[in-house]
């Protein structure tokens, strides 16, 4: 892949990759690390892509796989990100407020299903393929995710956050 192609894909899909990573991890520094890994893999990938959509699907699938690997890794649970040491502001989305916190409280599997379906616009069969599960499971996760999000928003509504009020 050429430098200009990499530059273009970062410009096009950096936000999508970080968004998908944020569905798995709980802090922005891990999402950033995953995004760097994903684009590094893209840069060193020797295959070809049929279209931008194909590239995007590849990037999101790679993001999901790397996020799962990170969560499974033994050291992940016991290591602090570099940012936490004070070099750079570390931002934990679970400790934030507003919509971001609500998003972080949706069960992880449901969250990625909702994100891929509603935000990225993939079908249940495409999500099933990307996440290594089947269509019934994805449909169930969408259904449960909607219920969960609704219930979380109702709870958060009491905090009279203007941003949250917009969804009612």
């Amino acid at each position: 892949m050429t430098d200009s192609e990499l530059e273009r894909y970062i410009k096009l899909y950096r936000a999508n990759v970080i968004g998908a990573a944020l569905c798995y991890v709980k802090n922005t520094s891990d999402a950033e690390d995953i995004a760097q890994d994903v684009f590094f893999r893209l840069y060193t990938y020797t295959g070809t892509f049929e279209s931008d959509e194909h590239t995007k699907a590849w990037l999101l699938r790679c993001t999901i796989n790397l996020s799962k690997s990170l969560l499974r890794s033994h050291w992940y649970k016991f290591s602090l990100p570099l940012e936490a040491a004070g070099e750079k502001a570390h931002f934990d989305i679970a400790e934030s407020d507003g919509l971001l916190q609500v998003m972080s409280r949706i069960t992880k599997r449901n969250r990625i299903a909702l994100y891929m379906y509603y935000y990225e616009g993939y079908s249940t069969s495409e999500i099933a393929e990307m996440t290594g599960t089947n269509v019934d499971t994805v449909s169930a996760r969408l259904s449960r995710g909607r219920k969960q999000l609704k219930s979380l928003l109702i709870k958060e509504r009491r905090r009279s956050d203007d941003e949250l009020q917009r969804f009612f």
């Binding site: 919509l99 971001l100 909702l114 928003l153 969804f167």
Partner: peptide
């Protein structure tokens, strides 16, 4: 509720 808007705003 618009789920796409929700994720867009959260992100």
């Amino acid at each position: 509720m618009n789920y796409k808007d929700f994720f867009e705003n959260a992100l």
